[in-house]
Simulated assay, not measured.
Amino acid sequence: MYLENKNIVLLATGSFNPPTNMHFRMFEIARDHLNRLGYTVCGGLVSPVHDSYKKKDLVASTHRCAMLELALTTLPWVKMSNWEVRQNKWTCTRQVLQYHQNYLNSVINSRLNGTNNEKFLLPVQFLKDIITNKSKTNRAINVRLLCGADLLESFAVPGLWDDDDIETIVRDYGLVVISRSGSNPNKFIYESDILTKYMANIIIVTEWISNEISSTKIRRALCRNDSVKFLLNESVESYIKDQGLYGTDNK
């Protein structure tokens, strides 16, 4: 099954603990590449993981959402969704994609049919062009999972992913994978029967400007009182220190 819809909304899931400049750089890299391929990138979404996700040093979602809101003021075409963190428990990635694709298309259909109401909580300004552009025969959008090559490779970790979930994600939504120079995601796709079957729905984007920023390294730097300038949005750095997150309250 090949996903023919050219109207794309990029969705990135993860801890964002804290959100780094590289998290948002991925959106810019992906949009440039997809535009060159003839896609229309309508917008982007970040969906922070639920507090019940078992990960070391994960701060409360109230803090992670606040940091994302601050950081995204400099990237207005990308919005934060707090749907995942508002659930009663951790939600698998397939369900996150499913919810947001159904949700956004219901917004489009509601606006087009003149039945708009105010129940929609997620900022959807980026759908305006699709709704108002009368020349579009297909106004539906395809939510694609934006991720790094490390997530793609995690599909092979025993017990981490359900095979049915992997197949559904790649078949029904598709991936946009940001890969670094020197990595070989195509080899990994070749070694996976599921990914090879739906490889037409996997778009590989190479980041040629090397950047090794990670949330783990930034948490370590913050704990040691080392500078994180130019690694985080300045307002995010201020928030972390004001709230005493990641060990900064001990400084």
Results as ranks from 00 to 15, higher is better:
G38P: 04
G38R: 05
Y39Q: 04
T40I: 12
T40R: 14
T40F: 12
V41E: 00
C42G: 10
G43F: 03
G43E: 03
L45I: 14
P48M: 08
V49H: 04
V49T: 15
V49R: 05
H50R: 09
D51R: 05
D51Y: 04
K54Q: 15
K55H: 09
K56I: 11
K56Q: 15
D57G: 04
A60H: 12
A60M: 10
S61K: 08
S61V: 06
T62A: 12
H63Y: 14
R64I: 05
C65W: 05
A66Y: 06
E69D: 10
L70G: 07
L70P: 06
L70I: 10
L70Q: 11
L72D: 00
T73A: 12
T73N: 14
T73E: 15
T74K: 15
L75A: 10
W77A: 05
M80W: 04
M80K: 10
S81T: 13
R86D: 14
R86W: 06
R86Y: 08
Q87N: 13
K89M: 10
W90E: 11
W90A: 11
T91H: 01
T91N: 07
T91F: 02
T91A: 06
C92T: 07
T93D: 05
R94D: 11
Q95N: 11
Q95P: 00
Q95L: 14
V96T: 12
L97M: 10
L97D: 00
Y99W: 10
H100K: 04
H100G: 00
N102T: 15
N102S: 15
Y103S: 04
N105V: 02
S106L: 10
V107Y: 06
V107T: 07
N109Q: 14
N109A: 13
N109I: 06
S110V: 01
S110G: 09
R111H: 10
L112I: 09
N113P: 01
G114N: 12
T115E: 13
T115S: 13
N116I: 09
N116M: 13
N117P: 04
E118T: 11
L121I: 15
L122D: 08
L122W: 05
Q125K: 15
F126A: 05
L127T: 03
L127D: 01
D129A: 13
T132L: 12
K134Q: 13
S135K: 13
T137I: 14
T137N: 13
N138C: 09
R139Y: 00
R139E: 06
A140N: 13
I141C: 07
I141P: 00
V143A: 05
L145D: 02
L146Q: 07
L146T: 07
A149I: 11
L152I: 03
S154W: 06
S154H: 07
S154C: 09
F155L: 02
F155P: 01
F155D: 01
F155W: 04
A156I: 08
V157R: 15
P158F: 03
G159F: 07
W161K: 01
W161Y: 04
D162E: 11
D163P: 11
D164R: 09
D165N: 10
D165R: 01
D165Y: 01
I166G: 02
E167V: 05
I169W: 01
V170F: 01
V170C: 01
